[in-house]
Amino acid sequence: MNFYLPIAEMSVNIFVFLGMGAAVGFLSGMFGVGGGFLMTPLLIFSGIPSAVAVGTEAAQIVASSVSGAIAQYRRKNVDIKLGVLLLAGGIVGSYLGVEVVKILRRMGQFDLVLSLAYVSFLGGIGTLMLIESLNTIRKSRSGVAVSSRKPGQHSWIHGLPFKMRFHRSKLYISAIPPIVIGAFVGFLGGVMGVGGGFIMIPAMIYLLRVPTNVVVGTSLFQITFVTAVTTVLHATQNYTVDIVLALLLMIGGVIGAQFGTVAGEKLKGEQLRFLLAALVLLVCLRLGWDLVVRPNELYSLSSLAGGH
């Protein structure tokens, strides 16, 4: 059954995109990730203009993260103060990201930058996760108890000014790092159409030493609001949010996520991380391939970006 997308201006098969939403939703439910880093490349492979893919995916991430954020808030796992700082940075970063998309589209280099960003981030994070999960698997096989990280070592971050107390996170740190981290994640979200949890969660754990129970809730809080702002910015700056496409992905996504969560509970943490790392590296290789292999068609056409 075909439906004509009002913003992407193309006729698509509804079931293809519902299925795509369900597949990515399944994986994100299974691995506990947002799935933006999988969905945006998939949308582009399936012929959706890259700018529309990025803008629309932001709206879908709002839908997939809002319920999680509320659940975490009820369990008192959101550090609002920290979340607001991350958010303040995030909004600035997102604004810059959307502006950069606008400029790059005009220059004809958006697809290149998007691919490079995906290849470097997915490659880096996938490799780190792969190594970490393999080490854990090897250690648990050889019977060595896996020790959790020691918290609380002082680093250069503790020397920064504008210190604030974060009660729920039991932290007394400068306000600058959360704002910078938030801005960086917001920027990536604006450019890459991702929530940025895969950057923010490690940054909060390793750089800010936020307790693990607060990390996920606070990051979801930030992602929900930043992607909401990103959606509005893409809609007003680039006219690239396709509401019908977003709705298809949301419906598929929420259903897939329910089944994914069940499947994820049957696997061990390190096994999940290994599989996720393999998946991330596959997406990375696929995107990298297109950059280095001589394309069949050297020419490409684009209508003028934001030509209004």
Partner: peptide
Amino acid sequence: CVSLAVGA
């Protein structure tokens, strides 16, 4: 779009 996403 955002309110639709939140609603969904």
